[in-house]
Amino acid sequence: MSTDIGVWIAAFLTLGILSFLYKDNPFYKVSESIFIGVSAAYWFVYMIYNVIEPNLLGNLQKGEWWYAVAGILGVMMLFRLIPKIGWLSRWAVAFMIGTGAGLNFIVYLQSNVMKQIRGTLAPLNSIGNIMMIVGVITGLIYFFFSAEHKGLLGGAAKVGIWFIMVSFGASFGYTVMARISLLIGRMHFLFSDWLGLLH
């Protein structure tokens, strides 16, 4: 059995979270509350040391004055705390949303449209390839919104959703083992690191 107080705390908290599977109980609630409090502070401190210090202060010290604008936007967000000028925070929000939308637009166009189309274009010379083209087309038809899914369109959409369901099933089955290995990891901690029953 471990003599390290840290391992004991870790084991206590691990059991606290696992006890949730039985039902919500004080043991879980304490672990959850510690987690929420500690993790909030963790990210706060992390941001100060890893973002604000190097990215803002570091760049300003290097004379890259335009980083001051980012600082101003950041401070503007905090104006929300002062009701009279709270509306100014919208400028910073608009900056985040606008640039985010532009970036996403380009990223998704390349990764979700161009790449997928490129991957689908294949010679119709094997059952696999023909199925791929049929599957992608019927899948796309399932996502048609401005026409009723009746007749030929309805039939195609139905085939599309079959493909989608098989895919979901396959992904599901694929993930099971990975999830079980996570649990094995925790069990190993409890029985080996803490109790010392396994070596």
Binding site: I117, R118, L121, I133, I137, L140, F143, F145, A147
Partner: peptide, 30 residues
């Protein structure tokens, strides 16, 4: 969006034929 999908379906069908006849210029566009 629906028109976009219709366009993509047309491209996939066209691309399938072009690929079958090894007309790679079209495919490389993407």
């Amino acid at each position: 969006q629906d028109w976009g999908k219709a366009g993509l379906i047309a491209l996939i069908i066209l691309g399938g034929f072009f690929a079958s006849f090894h007309f790679d210029t079209f495919i490389n566009l993407f």
